[in-house]
Design a binder for these strands. Structure first.
Lengths: 200, 200
DNA sequence: ACAAAGATACTGAACGTTCAGTATGTCTCC
DNA sequence: GGAGACATACTGAACGTTCAGTATCTTTGT
């Protein structure tokens, strides 16, 4: 299944043949079909088993903390980790885009994953707003979409151009930019931020 | 070729059969092979002819202006336009990701496209810094990567979840966030919602 | 003015290959 | 010796590609 995830992440679902996965795993096609009903079963098993596990790990590793800004940093760190040591993040992005109009069921699965991610990030922003460390005139849902988008955008560019886009540096800069935007005191219109503002 | 771009953008290169393109164009497979040497030729022609045209149009539409912030807004607007009225933006993103490990030549082409885009955005930031409307302690190249990433991330999420991610609103919020980050003197200014030029 | 000659745009039917899926054989360990 | 864990050989369908043939325009010679 690790071989499958790697192949799917790099070549896409349609670009990966069962035989290729089998060879990468050091077995033959028959072995694959012994463990999985068909190609789609292998795909979904990979998504639920590994990607679901990764997602859980990321979210759980963060809910412990108190400071919203620090938690945001840890989310980004977790994404960086799973984008570099394994191919889990690229798997999600690649398959997500490929599945859009070709596999409605898988696409719905990824929709749920991204929604959970955004809901989690929105909660994080709400927490920051409650703590007074984040602007209150920003919609948490929208902030979550921007944070998720910034991470995804950084990853996509990194996968496409590893020599020009250093993922670690780009994600750090992304965090900095998000912090500057989310920091209280920069309200454009509406409610002024509450006190205790501090950059970190 | 319009039919090919639409199919490629939605189903990917490997997910699109020549016959599907032909049917979408109201002809048969033979007609496609009369105009294009092979499937890859069709793909590259589509990239160079249409996507290159879009890119040119975006860059030209912006170089006229003086205000860097307004120019940034127009870049985003152009991306929005080509993401909604045609499928050009989705074509780029979909094919870019699919090509990474499956079509080195195409991947190099997209690498050049993204690099041009970032170089252009970096120049834009440099202009803003020269005008005193943007912070000078930010690396223009890095800012360009973040801007491009934010746009790409917004688009990806929109394609994946059109009901939750409104592209126009998300891009507007992205602009606002970028403006808050890029604004000189810490966080004092945002960008006014939609509307004409603004003094900074 | 008009027909012969050729270019252009396309059709429909093949062909070769790839690949998901299946059926059956083989080995190993309890 | 039988069941689990594979390997091997094969099938059917889809797909990229080629090609002979056809219809419609365009040019040219008389």
């Amino acid at each position: 299944m690790a071989a499958a995830i790697d192949c799917f992440a790099r070549l896409g679902y349609q670009g990966t043949s069962i035989e290729r996965i089998a060879r990468a795993a050091g077995v033959t096609k028959g072995a694959v079909y012994y463990h999985f009903r068909d190609k789609e079963d292998l795909l979904f098993s990979a998504v639920k088993d590994r990607i679901g596990g990764f997602e859980k790990q990321v979210l759980e590793a963060v809910t412990v903390a108190g400071d919203a800004q620090a938690a945001l940093r840890r989310v980004v760190d977790a994404c960086f980790l799973h984008a570099t040591v394994s191919n889990h993040r690229r798997f999600i992005i690649t398959l997500m885009i490929e599945a859009l109009d070709t596999n409605p069921r898988l696409s719905a699965e990824f929709q749920r994953i991204l929604r959970r991610m955004r809901a989690f990030l929105a909660d994080l922003v709400r927490r920051g707003q409650g703590q007074g460390t984040m602007r209150t005139d920003i919609d948490p849902e929208m902030a979550a979409a921007l944070i998720a988008g910034a991470i995804i955008g950084a990853e996509v560019q990194h996968y496409q151009d590893r020599t020009e886009i250093d993922l670690r540096a780009t994600l750090d800069a992304t965090l900095e930019a998000l912090a500057a935007w989310l920091a209280p005191g920069g309200a454009t219109h509406g409610i002024a931020a509450s006190g205790g503002a501090k950059t970190w």
